[in-house]
Design a protein around this nucleic acid. Structure first.
Length: 718
DNA sequence: CGCTTTTGTCATAGG
DNA sequence: GACCTATGACAAAAG
């Protein structure tokens, strides 16, 4: 969901935009198709029929658009040309409804032909051009597809998720669909299973999606919680109180890890926090392709297409945004990026090597609403102090700015994006942002990979050239939202200069009042301490390091005893702080949830009370009518006083309870009634009442003939 | 000044 | 056994 404040100098107009809506609609349509609900066309392919919605087909395919536009009859049947085969059409049909294209080596050509014949939109030759070589020239290794290196536009269509389980030669090309879940070992197991069979993959995807129902924006995240909390939830009997992390995006995708990297890029989409350290690790190695998982379990996948290009994919756990982000999020040339903290999508990264070689900085955000920075055009030196605030994605390039390199002038400004519970995002586009430094807050700090690499690998002798201390006053380096900022930069090594310049100024808190007030004294204290112990890295960066990365850092970096203690302590406290925050939030969620349950139960109780009251009234009414009826029966039956007395005494006789007026009758006839035998309707046993009613019906039935049966009986003894 | 709320930290349990 | 997360308890700061 997005709330956008449209540009206006002093007054803002807000529009509500749901990024989840389109995916939900598509999902519902697919459900309808599978249930053959509201389907209004039958497509016949090679004698096989497929039910579908005309509107969907027409919107996905030129062919259907043309053929269906003239059709008005409901339940039309369309026979496709011979060129279209079942194996080619079926995946396309599914693609139309799921954005997910499933194909294997055997069917890829059929699909391509069918797609070509049918003019399937959003699925042009580019993806086939990209994928076919993967299938049919496996030995080609990691040689990048030339197209990729020169045509971002094509890549834009290269859906935001591409999974290629090479062992089965089956490709799942998913444009927009979320691929949630798989953080826990269990779900990683699922992922492993998924990679083994396409079916398994599909099921996993679907089931996962099920866990992502919009209502449960709280995806099933219980697995991220401690057992105690799970017990608590179980005690609550609800999983709704677990929604806390629904917007935390700590879920990874069910994606195989062991794809043939050389031949098959494996993408998944995740709206995630991207950890620089992970990326740094990627670039440290020569692996052309790597899947990383950060501390939150977010999977970040990168494919190094060649020495110049890296395709990067971040898992989108919320999924609901994925439609909006189906397109390639950003393609960069000559730059290494740190995408915005919440920016998922496919990102073509340029390898740092080229950046180091001084390659041109070209950036293009392919996501229209997010295309904020275009480095290709209007390159100009940037002064951080005057830099217009840009979209967070663009902030990824901030490091360039820091390094005095070029970025483009930005036209759009000041978009803050935060995830909201539905998995959407809250966008605030502040037209006046140009004069405000607020837009710089909460943005992840950018860093160049090469710079980082230098600091990590060569930190002891870092000369990096990067990080120069010119960030003072740069809005991007100020007002860092601690909870959001993934990277606040690594400080220069102490050899670099007296003060910890560059990003390390964050450690030292040199930004003064720009430091967010939410960052408590502990943060300031930590930075102070970091400066005291001359820690060459950012406190936050170290905190955000995954365990492995942290250990690797410890191995590579010579820390003094003091630094080591400080680092461990700080890391522990920071993590505990966040854990406490999460814990409290969960607790609040539970409370809210319980409150909701209470209210619900109260309402239910009210309803039941009302019902009870109505039933009581009905009962009274019925009793009255029964009483009147009995009275009439008694008077008409002309019972002898003795008989009446017998009836009143006999508690077994159902009739006895139906004669509240017997007392009066008896007294009329001069007979006393035993107190204990006196009955009234009001004291009637409810259980007996039913039986009495039955008895009444039989009585009224019998009374007419009862005269016969009763009379002889009464008369006989005398 | 006392109360409540918020937040960070520690200790501990459990994985 | 080291490490992580969750959580109760406590204390300090803020409102």
């Amino acid at each position: 969901m997005s709330l956008m404040a449209m540009s206006a100098p002093r007054s803002s107009v807000f529009t509500f935009e749901s990024s989840a809506h389109s995916s939900h609609v598509l999902r519902r349509l697919d459900d309808q198709r599978r249930r053959d609900t509201l389907c209004d066309v039958t497509v016949v392919v090679e004698g096989q029929s497929f039910r579908a919605h005309r509107s969907v087909l027409a919107s996905c395919s030129e062919y259907f658009s043309l053929r269906l536009s003239g059709l008005t009859q409901h339940g039309a049947v369309i026979t496709l040309p011979q060129e279209v085969t079942v194996s080619g059409f079926e995946p396309l049909l599914k693609f139309a409804y799921t954005s997910k294209l499933l194909f294997g080596k055997d069917s890829v050509l059929d699909i391509r032909n069918s797609a070509s014949v049918l003019g399937f939109r959003d699925l042009d030759e580019a993806c086939f051009d990209f994928l076919l070589p993967k299938f049919f020239s496996r030995s080609s290794g990691a040689v990048a597809c030339p197209r990729m290196t020169c045509c971002e536009r094509k890549y834009k269509r290269l859906l935001s998720k591409v999974e290629i389980p090479t062992d089965s030669d089956v490709v799942l090309l998913d444009e927009k669909e979320e691929k949630p879940v798989a953080d826990s070992p269990l779900q990683q197991e699922v992922a492993e299973l998924c990679k083994k069979s396409l079916e398994g993959k599909k099921r996993g995807s679907q089931s996962d999606r099920g866990a992502l129902t919009p209502g449960a924006a709280g995806v099933n995240v219980s697995f991220v919680q401690c057992p105690k909390y799970r017990k608590f939830q179980l005690a609550c009997g609800k999983d709704a109180c677990v929604t806390e992390r629904s917007n935390v995006n700590n879920l990874a995708t069910v994606v195989r890890d062991d794809c043939n990297l050389s031949s098959s890029p494996n993408f998944s989409q995740n709206e995630s926090e991207v950890q620089i350290p992970s990326r740094r690790s990627n670039y440290q190695t020569d692996e052309p392709w790597k899947t990383e998982r950060n501390e939150d379990g977010v999977r970040t996948q990168e494919v190094k297409l060649d020495e110049n290009y890296v395709v990067k994919m971040e898992d989108d756990t919320t999924g609901v945004n994925s439609l909006d982000r189906a397109s390639v999020n950003a393609v960069s040339l000559g730059e290494s990026t740190v995408p915005g903290e919440r920016s998922p999508g496919l990102i073509l990264h340029h390898c740092p090597l080229m950046a180091l070689a001084g390659g041109p900085a070209i950036t293009r955000s392919l996501e229209q609403e997010r295309s904020v920075v275009d480095l290709k055009e209007e390159k100009k030196p940037v002064d951080c102090g005057e830099q217009e605030p840009v979209h967070q994605d663009a902030d990824a390039w901030g490091e360039r700015r820091k390094e005095g390199q070029t970025v483009s002038e930005t036209k759009e400004i000041g978009i803050m994006e935060r995830n909201v519970e539905s998995g959407g995002s809250l966008n605030v586009l502040d037209s006046d942002a140009g004069s405000s430094s607020d837009t710089g807050s909460g943005q992840p700090q950018p860093v160049s990979l090469e710079w980082l690499k230098l600091h990590v690998n060569l930190s002891s002798s870092s000369s990096g050239g990067g990080g120069g201390g010119d960030d003072g006053g740069c809005p991007f380096l100020q007002d860092l939202d601690q909870s959001k900022c993934l990277w606040k930069g690594a400080g220069q090594s102490e050899s670099e200069g007296a003060s910890l310049s560059g990003v390390s100024s964050l450690n030292s808190g040199e930004d003064g009042e720009s430091e967010t007030e939410t960052e408590g004294d502990s943060e300031s204290y930590a930075r102070e301490r970091a400066r005291q112990v001359q820690l060459p890295f950012s406190v936050d960066w170290i905190v955000d390091l995954s365990r492995n990365d942290f250990q690797q850092l410890l191995k590579q970096q010579e820390f003094t005893r003091e630094q080591l203690d400080f680092v461990h302590d700080m890391r522990r406290r920071s993590k505990n702080r966040l854990a406490a925050q999460r814990c409290r939030k969960r607790k609040l969620d539970c409370i809210y949830n319980l409150q909701y349950e209470i209210n619900k139960l109260k309402a239910e109780r009210e309803k039941l009370m009302m019902e009870k009251s109505q039933l009581r009234q009905l009962k009274m009414k019925t009793c009255h009518s029964v009483s009147a009826l009995c009275q009439r029966v008694c008077s008409e039956s002309n019972l002898q006083p003795e008989q009446l007395q017998v009836l009143t005494k006999s508690s077994d006789c159902p009739l006895s309870s139906l004669f509240p007026h017997i007392d009066a009758l008896l007294s009329q006839r001069g007979l006393q009634v035993q107190p204990q035998t006196s009955r009234s309707v009001s004291s009637m046993d409810p259980d007996k009442f039913e039986a009495s009613e039955e008895a009444l019906s039989s009585t009224s039935r019998d009374t007419r003939e009862g005269h016969r049966s009763l009379k002889p009986h009464t008369e006989s003894p005398h």
